[in-house]
Computed example of a mutant assay.
Amino acid sequence: MTKKFKDYYDCDYALELSQRIVVVYPQFQTDRFLSLLSPSLEQLEFNDRQVLLASSLKEVLSLNYQETIALFEKILGPELESSLGMFTEGYWLWPIGKYVELYGDTDFEISTSFSKELTKRFTGEFCMRPIILAFPEQSMQLLLKWSLDENKRVRRLASECIRIRLPWAKKLYTALDYFDIYSELLTNLKDDSDKTIQKSVANNLNDLYKDDPVRFETIISAWETEDTTKECIWIIKHASRTKRKRESSI
């Protein structure tokens, strides 16, 4: 029987996470951490497990937010070299991202800086979304900058975290409120050679079409020129899948 993804986050996982923390923070109370989890962790669904893990970390760590993030930075480990691996090699970092998602939306600088480092080992789109809601203009300007970053995982994050309909997340309409920046951000990525970035941009635009077909066409028409790259052509085709489906049903 195939192991469900949620079941990777069990009590054995919690012990392994605590052991990573103890290496850099010997005061960590492993027994107390496990006692907060053991009655219910393995009975919960995926997201509830992440919330319980993150909230239990907060309860056990006698540190403020800035100090906690500084501790987490010490256990991140090496950056992933490829675009993939976030759910295989970096999966163990999910509760760390959930911690930032739950408690980091009042500290823009620390939370965004950590999210940038986190995405190099795992992914940062979920923990960035509350920050985007709390600091929309600052976030959009930062994401625009990240869309030009030398690290491909950071460039992907610039697109992925601003998706209107990101799976496993609440809808986020900041892209529509700051459409000029959003359009420029995606345009910076439209010719990217990395396939995960191409998929993110295409999914972003497919989300956009569902809520605002006119703005979708504004971006696509600007990209469709005689010099359009093969990467951009692929993005446009993949981004137009909902449009094609709707047109074929008429």
Rank of each mutant, 00 (worst) to 15 (best):
K152V: 00
D180W: 12
Y182G: 14
E150L: 01
I181T: 14
K210E: 07
D192R: 04
E224F: 14
Y209V: 00
D212N: 07
I220Q: 08
S159W: 02
I219W: 10
D177C: 03
V154L: 02
N206P: 08
Q198R: 15
I162T: 10
Y182M: 13
S159D: 03
R163N: 03
K237M: 05
D227A: 14
D227L: 13
S159R: 01
S183T: 09
P167K: 11
K195H: 15
N206C: 05
L189Y: 11
D180E: 15
E217F: 15
L186S: 04
N204W: 05
D177Y: 13
S183P: 09
R165H: 10
R153D: 00
R156Y: 03
S200D: 05
F216P: 04
R163L: 06
T187C: 10
W223F: 14
K152P: 01
P213T: 05
F216N: 04
I233S: 09
K230S: 15
R165P: 06
A175T: 13
D177M: 05
D211H: 07
S221V: 09
W234T: 04
T225D: 12
A222D: 14
E231R: 07
D211L: 04
R153Y: 05
K195N: 13
D177E: 15
E224L: 12
D227T: 14
I233W: 12
C161M: 00
Y209E: 04
L172Q: 11
S221H: 15
S221G: 11
L157P: 09
